[in-house]
Simulated scan of single mutants.
Amino acid sequence: MLNIVSILIGLLSLIIVIPSQIPLLGWGNWFALPIIVAGIVIGQLSSSNGGRNFCLIVLLIAAVRLTLGGGIF
């Protein structure tokens, strides 16, 4: 059950992260980061680790975008 919740949280954060890849919308990643971390924590509590891994991939996408944009853009 917690794995499904983690996947849903990952999908919600992915919906925020995808438009944030557009230049000048990178600030949206800052809103997605706490949601992604919550998904990782919930996924860690689950017996399976699919949801946690999905949230880690979304976190990687957001972190790379923030790094390329200098943290703001």
Rank of each mutant, 00 (worst) to 15 (best):
N49A: 10
L12G: 15
I16T: 09
A62C: 06
F31M: 15
L59M: 13
P19S: 13
C55F: 00
R65T: 14
G70V: 01
F31R: 04
V5G: 01
G10Q: 06
P23W: 02
A32T: 02
L66Q: 06
N49E: 13
Q21M: 15
G50L: 14
I40H: 12
L45D: 02
Q44A: 15
A62K: 00
W27C: 02
S47W: 01
L33S: 03
W30F: 09
W27E: 03
P34N: 07
N3R: 09
C55R: 08
N53M: 12
L14A: 12
I36N: 04
G28A: 03
T67R: 07
G71C: 05
L25A: 12
A38Q: 05
L12V: 09
L33Y: 04
V64D: 07
I40L: 00
I40T: 13
V58K: 11
A63C: 05
P34I: 04
L33G: 02
I57S: 10
L2C: 00
C55H: 05
L2M: 01
A63P: 02
L56R: 01
V58W: 00
L68N: 13
A62Q: 08
F31Q: 06
G69D: 11
S47D: 15
F54E: 09
V37N: 03
L59W: 09
G10M: 03
I16Y: 02
L24T: 11
V41R: 14
C55Q: 06
L2W: 01
L56A: 10
V41H: 12
G50H: 11
S48W: 12
L24V: 06
L59H: 08
L56Q: 09
G39A: 04
N49P: 01
I40C: 14
I40K: 09
L59P: 07
I72D: 08
V5S: 14
G50Y: 15
V17E: 04
G10P: 07
I35V: 12
L68I: 09
F73V: 00
L59V: 05
L8Y: 03
T67V: 06
A38V: 15
I9L: 14
